[in-house]
Amino acid sequence: MKAETGSTVLTPEMIENPSLIPVESPVIRDALTYWRDRRPGPGLLPGRQHIDPTEIPRLLQSIWLLDVVRDDPDYPKMRFRCRIFGGHFLDSWGPRMQGKLLDTVSNFTGSDGEADLIAVCETGMPRHYNGAPSVDPFTMVASVEALMLPLARDGRTIDMMMNFSQCRHSDSAEPSLFNH
């Protein structure tokens, strides 16, 4: 199925039946299914404690975890601290961003990517994105497909974001990430 361009808020129906989402990458579809199946109960979000990396080894190359920072009096919006990057990101982004705030990347503040992450945190609804990259390091690829999934230790207050990205280089129709 060909994914549409842009950001899509996932409805409860899409979460329960991922085949309703125009996802191109099996990694993205599998990540959503894994997240969905880790919810601790009806109406609750999974927390980091529900995620076991040994259960998703195939997905780990594409993962990037962000801590949600809500209590910075000097910053009017919520912020995102880079916690973990999968193997595909280590050479391009991981070393310079690990432990740092995402808004220190010059083109993140005010970007569609920032707006999507904030919206997921405000609504608790995952988002799927497919289209042109707008945030470094994704600007070096032709297109990106991403999934933004909220995590909440208490099931309600989002304190982390579990994201997965698959990128396509202009010379390839196959998903890849920074493997030049």
Rank of each mutant, 00 (worst) to 15 (best):
residue 60 L to M: 15
residue 60 L to C: 13
residue 61 Q to R: 14
residue 62 S to P: 03
residue 62 S to N: 15
residue 63 I to W: 06
residue 63 I to K: 02
residue 64 W to R: 01
residue 64 W to H: 12
residue 64 W to V: 02
residue 65 L to H: 01
residue 65 L to S: 04
residue 65 L to M: 08
residue 66 L to H: 09
residue 66 L to V: 04
residue 66 L to W: 06
residue 67 D to M: 05
residue 68 V to A: 08
residue 68 V to Q: 07
residue 71 D to V: 05
residue 73 P to H: 09
residue 73 P to T: 04
residue 74 D to N: 15
residue 74 D to V: 08
residue 74 D to C: 11
residue 76 P to V: 10
residue 77 K to Y: 13
residue 78 M to V: 13
residue 79 R to A: 10
residue 80 F to K: 01
residue 80 F to P: 01
residue 82 C to V: 06
residue 82 C to N: 12
residue 83 R to E: 06
residue 83 R to M: 04
residue 84 I to Q: 04
residue 84 I to T: 09
residue 85 F to K: 00
residue 85 F to C: 00
residue 85 F to L: 01
residue 86 G to Y: 03
residue 87 G to M: 00
residue 88 H to E: 05
residue 88 H to T: 03
residue 88 H to Q: 06
residue 89 F to Q: 02
residue 89 F to N: 03
residue 90 L to P: 00
residue 90 L to V: 06
residue 90 L to A: 02
residue 90 L to W: 01
residue 90 L to Q: 09
residue 91 D to T: 05
residue 92 S to T: 14
residue 92 S to P: 00
residue 92 S to C: 12
residue 92 S to R: 13
residue 92 S to A: 13
residue 93 W to D: 09
residue 93 W to Q: 08
residue 95 P to A: 14
residue 95 P to R: 14
residue 95 P to I: 07
residue 95 P to V: 10
residue 95 P to F: 10
residue 95 P to C: 05
residue 96 R to P: 03
residue 97 M to R: 12
residue 97 M to L: 14
residue 98 Q to K: 11
residue 98 Q to T: 15
residue 100 K to N: 13
residue 102 L to N: 09
residue 102 L to Y: 10
residue 102 L to T: 10
residue 104 T to L: 15
residue 104 T to K: 14
residue 107 N to G: 12
residue 109 T to C: 12
residue 110 G to C: 06
residue 111 S to E: 06
residue 111 S to Q: 05
residue 114 E to T: 02
residue 114 E to R: 02
residue 115 A to W: 01
residue 115 A to T: 08
residue 116 D to N: 09
residue 116 D to G: 00
residue 117 L to E: 07
residue 118 I to K: 05
residue 120 V to H: 07
residue 121 C to E: 05
residue 122 E to T: 02
residue 122 E to G: 11
residue 123 T to P: 12
residue 123 T to I: 07
residue 124 G to W: 10
residue 124 G to S: 10
residue 125 M to L: 15
residue 127 R to G: 03
residue 127 R to D: 00
residue 127 R to I: 00
residue 129 Y to G: 05
residue 129 Y to M: 04
residue 131 G to L: 06
residue 131 G to A: 08
residue 135 V to D: 06
